[in-house]
Write a protein that binds this DNA or RNA. Structure first.
Lengths: 176, 176
DNA sequence: TTGTATGCAAATAATTTGCACCAAA
DNA sequence: TTTGGTGCAAATTATTTGCATACAA
């Protein structure tokens, strides 16, 4: 099976990266988006924006739902509404979405710097890194192919430093 | 909705790239894999290797099944067996797998050069390109982060040349 | 013969949809 | 008031699994 297709639930972690300069908070930007489309400011949307932009770096729908109030509790948001709202966030440019191991993973886009990921096939950690060189090279290659770039997604798979150094002895052999 | 998340069935196309030097055909290599694991050479496996390595560049399970014989016809292979066998191909290093729009997409790995993709958000074409510079940069960055690279996956999203040039007038405005 | 492989039907898992009711503007 | 939004239950889609049977070694 490919490295991108492990079946265990993955741990998702990340470095803290410096925030990008933005004139509005994600909340303000989302409100503007709603206004521009004639959509409504509801309790659920307000609550979800807050949650998503206070807690996470990467997450999938289930991880988000898990840390939301349960049915019956205050601020409960149903599963379909979570999915519908995540779509709106992507649409509004607040979140970016990609797929890993068959499920959708979301990460902050608005106010968050461009970055790529290392994916460790041992511990399944998804770790961010920044490199302007990648963007430069990407644009250069796209120019050569007359392709108009909108964005890109790069995941480097392999074994992270932790997993290849502090690995117990009897596993050393698998590490090359 | 993100570019990676269009819901229409995507067209998948590619450039012809030069084959990499290999000492065995995919079929031979698969047989060796089966042998090494004590698995059996069955009609279904033999037929699927042939199909996959004669027809496709990129495909998903449904596209493959569509061009296989139907139930009742000669060489019919059931859906579960197709999925099981695709997994074996990935395991054997014959195919690589990645996810696009929520489904698994497969491409030739064995005997096929390393490459990356452009994904056109207008026509949904997935087009291959080769660049050693990307691999170099990837390895350089990984070294800096002490990450042991096994492979990578890069998809550049945007608008392909065809879609941005021979586009009808009333669409010009969406092209940035 | 002996266990692996296959096909079938059913099960999963993630996500989406239809619809009646609710609420923001 | 009017139209969009929500929750619920059910539907969908892709993929996987249990199990009885078939077949390669």
């Amino acid at each position: 099976m490919s490295e991108l297709a492990v079946s265990e639930p993955e741990q998702i972690s990340s470095f803290a990266l410096e925030a990008v300069e933005v004139s509005q908070t994600p909340i303000e930007r989302f409100e503007e988006y709603l206004l521009s489309r004639g959509l409504r400011k509801t309790e659920q949307r307000r609550f979800l924006v807050e949650q998503v932009f206070s807690h996470h770096e990467h997450f999938d729908a289930d991880q988000l739902i898990d840390q939301l109030p349960r049915k019956g509790e205050e601020n409960y948001v149903s599963r379909p509404t979570v999915y519908r709202t995540l779509k709106e966030f992507v649409d509004a440019g607040l979140l970016r979405r990609f797929e890993l191991n068959g499920r959708s993973v979301y990460e902050h886009d608005y106010g968050y710097p461009e970055h790529d990921h290392f994916y460790c096939v041992k511990c399944h950690a998804l770790t961010e890194f920044q490199s302007e060189r990648i963007t430069q090279l990407r644009d250069e290659i796209a120019r050569e192919h007359r392709f108009r770039v909108r964005s890109h997604r790069l995941i480097i798979q392999g074994v992270c430093h932790d997993c290849s150094s502090r690995r117990n002895q009897r596993r050393r052999q698998d590490l090359v």
